[in-house]
Write a protein that binds this DNA or RNA. Sequence first.
DNA 1: AGCGGCGATACCGCACGGATATCGATCGTG
DNA 2: CACGATCGATATCCGTGCGGTATCGCCGCT
Lengths: 274, 274
Amino acid sequence: MRYFVAVAEELHFGRAAQRLAMAQPPLSRAIQQLERRLGVVLLHRTARAVALTEAGSVLLREARAALDAVEAAERRTRRAAAEPPGVVLATKAGASSELLSKLLDAYAAEPGAVAVEVMLCGPGEQERLLRDGRADVALLQRPFDTTAGLDTEDLHTEQQVVVLPAGHPLANRPHMSMAEVTTLTDLPLPRWPRRGGGYPDGPGPQVRDHTQLFQLIALGRACAIVPESLRAHLRDDHATVPVPDAPAVTTVIAWSPHSRSQAVADLVRTATRL
Amino acid sequence: MRYFVAVAEELHFGRAAQRLAMAQPPLSRAIQQLERRLGVVLLHRTARAVALTEAGSVLLREARAALDAVEAAERRTRRAAAEPPGVVLATKAGASSELLSKLLDAYAAEPGAVAVEVMLCGPGEQERLLRDGRADVALLQRPFDTTAGLDTEDLHTEQQVVVLPAGHPLANRPHMSMAEVTTLTDLPLPRWPRRGGGYPDGPGPQVRDHTQLFQLIALGRACAIVPESLRAHLRDDHATVPVPDAPAVTTVIAWSPHSRSQAVADLVRTATRL
DNA sequence: AGCGGCGATACCGCACGGATATCGATCGTG
DNA sequence: CACGATCGATATCCGTGCGGTATCGCCGCT
């Protein structure tokens, strides 16, 4: 299955074999065996290109999930035996920092609290960390992060605001609409990296983190729609205007549905009581 | 991992080897290798008994999930390539039958509807079927069935009633409390089989399905608390009394969070519109 | 037509998984 | 207390299967 995922992602047997640190012929054979075992054609090979069949794309999705589950089993087992048996919390770098520090403080005061390792990660990465066992709990933000297949508990819902450079003519408006924000041609919305690392097409500047973003805004080159709690971190060269019709952001605490860990349960309980 | 699950479930290398259709020594070795690879002791072996360590029980849970995931990957891939590409719906035998028939009728009338194979199964079995890919959608009832790790959509919530033999002195009561029902020593609540097939200890009779149950009730040997929609299936030798303080039962439609199948999405959409 | 890229085929060697035989430890039992 | 039974671990052997190298066949580009 690892082999198939590699080939399906590369759509090229040679590169896939390289990535798997093996030669190409055994890889071809392995895929053929998999197809025979399943009785299903997974790839359409013309001598020039490799393409996924319908069944192949189903297997790609399912195989990723299965491989994550296997990895998670190994990691969680190792961590269950590790000393001390801490808990790993994943959160988007720069988001929900006050909530996080309150949570950590409150949890540390609980009886039976164990060490909490905080893992800061890029956007959309937390889900994967939970799935493959590198993290035990995560703070996610709907609707940005997908929570399918995870157990979650809502913690906090907030409106969004648009961040503008301090001197901007609209900075004193009581509120703005999404439509107004997207038509600010002098201040385009930035483009964030997608999963693979590439950027979507569009007019806005490319940003990688909040520091870059706010710098660009201060320079008058972009604006951004962010949860209002981020206002606390803005320097005085930024202004914010509420955007009532932007989707509300709900911060949730999420964990693997198979978790039976006391520490995770305690963290969740603590979080919901904040 | 299959090996480990077998040993962990049997807690006996000989029997586990038998179940795996292999000899005992290679099994012992395989488990040792697994322990070395993970760097973790999974089993405490005294010469007389085998016991799971803490880490071992974590691995047991995770390994089951992982094995289900790879089985699901295989099955879903095969089914994606099968002709015609129908969809499998799992439901508890005897429950939600009107809802089910309404759903099937409404879905069949949708444009692009595919064949729906209905799979009737025992209590608590649906979750497993969804996880290992034998089913694509299921009708579950909270709080009886666990929905952790599945995506669900609520369909219908109903109160529960107690079913008594028709002539019973309490049969005309306007309502009863849980406490009253559990103290009916002449009509004990029945015992349902657990996952493994064994029955919990207790006074009530052992039942396997609703037919048995209602027969026992008609004979005046038991009573039962069931969702009120089951009243439609009762013969006139049964009476029902509402139990307002019994937990409400919510019928939900559930599916694997990884599903991208159009048919599943259509079924869910149809169900929520009923 | 020729060359280059790419997947498939052919064949070889070795390492790993499984089998059998046996050991050693720990209870139960007369 | 000694003997036997039980059960997991160890030792050793063997066959299969996986991965490696060499090569082929097919197609597209120039």
